[in-house]
Amino acid sequence: MQSPSVNLEERRTIVSVVEDDAAMGAALRDLLNSAGCEAIVFERGESFIRSGAASNCDVIITDIELAGFDGLQILGAEAIGKVPVIVITALTDHFLERRAVDRGCFAFLRKPFDPAILLEHVRQAAASR
C-alpha cells in the first residue's frame, strides 16, 4: 500500500512561544493561530526546554526577560538545535540586543511591535529551515 503524499506547503508552522506575561502569551497565541500557525505557549523557559517542544517546532518566540531560565539562555540551549529564535522585549537595553544577536537570534523586536512585522519574521524564519 502506498502512503499518501504530503504537501509540505499545507503544513502549519509550529511556533513555540515563551512568554511569562499571560496576557501577552495569549495575544501572541491568538495572532499566530489566526495567521495559520499552530502556537504553543510556555510561561517559563525551564518548562519549554524540559518539554522537548523545540524538537517539534519551526520557530521559537521568546521574551528576553523571564524569571529563571531567560531568553538568552534559551538562545544558548543545546536543546533548541537550529530552530530560529525571535526575541521580543519591552526593555530598551542595546547590550541585551547585542548579546541576543551574538547568540544567533533570527530577529529582535521591541514591544510594542507591529503584529504584521512579527508575522513576517515568523514566515521568514520558518522558510529558512
Rank of each mutant, 00 (worst) to 15 (best):
A90G: 15
R29I: 06
H94K: 13
E65S: 13
H94W: 09
A27T: 09
G25E: 07
G71A: 07
E78S: 12
A27C: 07
E78Y: 02
E19I: 10
L72P: 08
A100M: 02
E43C: 09
A23D: 14
L96F: 13
T13E: 09
P112M: 05
A67M: 09
R98C: 07
L109Q: 03
C57T: 10
L96Y: 13
H121M: 14
D93G: 03
V15M: 03
D70L: 01
D114W: 00
D30L: 14
V18F: 00
G36P: 05
S16F: 07
A125M: 03
M24H: 09
D93Q: 02
D70M: 00
N33M: 08
R50D: 15
D58E: 02
E19W: 06
R50I: 03
V17S: 10
A23H: 09
V18Q: 07
I40C: 11
E38I: 01
G25V: 08
E10F: 04
Q73H: 02
V15W: 01
R11H: 10
R50G: 03
A54Q: 06
L119S: 00
V59Q: 04
P4W: 02
L96P: 05
V41C: 07
R11T: 14
V59M: 02
S51V: 02
N7T: 13
T92W: 08
R44N: 05
L32Y: 10
P112T: 06
S5W: 04
C37M: 12
V6L: 15
R44Q: 13
A90F: 00
A77T: 07
V41Q: 05
S128C: 12
V59W: 09
A127L: 12
I80P: 11
I14A: 10
L119K: 00
V17N: 08
L118F: 02
V17W: 05
E38M: 03
R103Q: 15
I14C: 08
L31K: 06
R123Q: 12
A127T: 07
F108D: 01
G45L: 04
R103K: 15
A53H: 12
I14Q: 10
E78A: 13
R103P: 06
S128P: 10
R99A: 12
E38D: 11
F113V: 00
D58N: 11
S16C: 14
P112G: 05
I117D: 04
R44W: 04
G45W: 02
D63L: 04
G52W: 03
D70P: 01
A77G: 09
G71H: 05
L109R: 01
D21E: 15
L75G: 04
L91C: 10
D63K: 03
R99V: 10
R12G: 05
E65V: 13
R12T: 10
G81L: 11
R44S: 13
Q73E: 13
P112I: 01
K111F: 00
F108R: 07
D30I: 13
R50Y: 07
C105F: 03
I40G: 07
H121C: 15
V101W: 09
G81V: 12
A54S: 10
D30H: 13
H94P: 14
F42N: 10
D21A: 13
S128I: 11
N33R: 12
S47G: 14
A26V: 04
F113M: 04
G36R: 06
A127Y: 04
V15F: 00
S128L: 10
E120M: 06
Q73F: 00
D21H: 11
L28G: 03
I80Q: 09
I86R: 01
I61H: 06
S34A: 15
A90M: 06
S34E: 14
R129L: 12
